[in-house]
Simulated assay, not measured.
Amino acid sequence: MILIAPQSAEHLYWMGRYIQRAESMTRLIIELFDKILDENFDEAKTFYEKLGIEMSYDSAQMFLRKTVFDLEYASLCDTVNSARENAILTRSHLSNRMFSRINALYLAYQKAKEERTVSLYWLEGTLKELDSIWGNFELSLVEAKEAPLIQLGKVVERMDLNIRLYDSIEAALLDVEKLNSIAEKVRPNHKRVALSSSNRYKTLQTINSVFGALTTTHES
């Protein structure tokens, strides 16, 4: 295991997951907003059912406000807040620039929440901030011991959402080699993951158990 405190490792991993979740869900919300307006008013309800969330709205704008501010534990505001909380808990492991970017995104969401105003243009702007966060990550943590833990969170979250939202085990398979490569940086004797099952629940369990296996398996 990489020489870093287990609790810090977990916070870095979840920071990576929450940042990726914010990015993936922002792109999805933008896409669903357009579909609600132009194609199928109930499109978002189907997608959120896959996440176990009952979604209701009277307009596209109401859908936007709800997903950004009001879904308990699942709003973009809550997701960004969770990313920042994990960043605070691992502050000493992050570059000043990366932490500042995460904090800036959090402050932008807090201001929007206080004013209760959100637009598609504003939401698209937050994607630029998320791109900057990942850009600073690549620039400042390429060889650092923390990098694989954050990268692991990023790829696990992407695989998880591809399966939950799109029932796409095939898309997850494209990331398996990357997942194994990152996991081997965390623990060289990592038992490589193979996704051969068409059972989505079994596949999700396998993907989401990787971090736990890396942090609890003892060296032989």
Rank of each mutant, 00 (worst) to 15 (best):
Y121E: 12
T206A: 15
K66R: 14
L120P: 02
I163L: 06
D34Q: 10
E54S: 12
T117H: 10
E219K: 08
Y13L: 08
A171K: 13
S24K: 08
L120H: 02
L76F: 03
T26C: 10
L89V: 06
H93F: 14
N40H: 07
L165T: 05
V142R: 14
E54D: 13
L94H: 03
M159T: 00
R21C: 07
T206M: 13
I4E: 08
S140H: 13
D58S: 15
S95K: 01
L105P: 02
E157C: 10
S132C: 09
W134M: 12
K185A: 10
Y57M: 04
A183D: 12
R97S: 14
L149E: 01
L105Y: 00
L179Y: 04
N81W: 00
E138I: 11
R192I: 02
L161C: 02
I150R: 02
A83D: 03
L107G: 04
V193G: 02
I36P: 02
Y106L: 01
L123H: 07
A194Y: 15
S75R: 01
S75G: 03
P188W: 00
C77S: 14
E85M: 07
Y121H: 12
M62Q: 15
D42T: 09
E177Q: 11
A22M: 01
K45C: 11
S59A: 02
L161I: 03
P6E: 00
I163K: 01
E39I: 15
D42E: 06
Q61V: 09
K191Y: 09
S197W: 01
I19F: 03
H93P: 06
P6T: 02
F63W: 05
R27V: 08
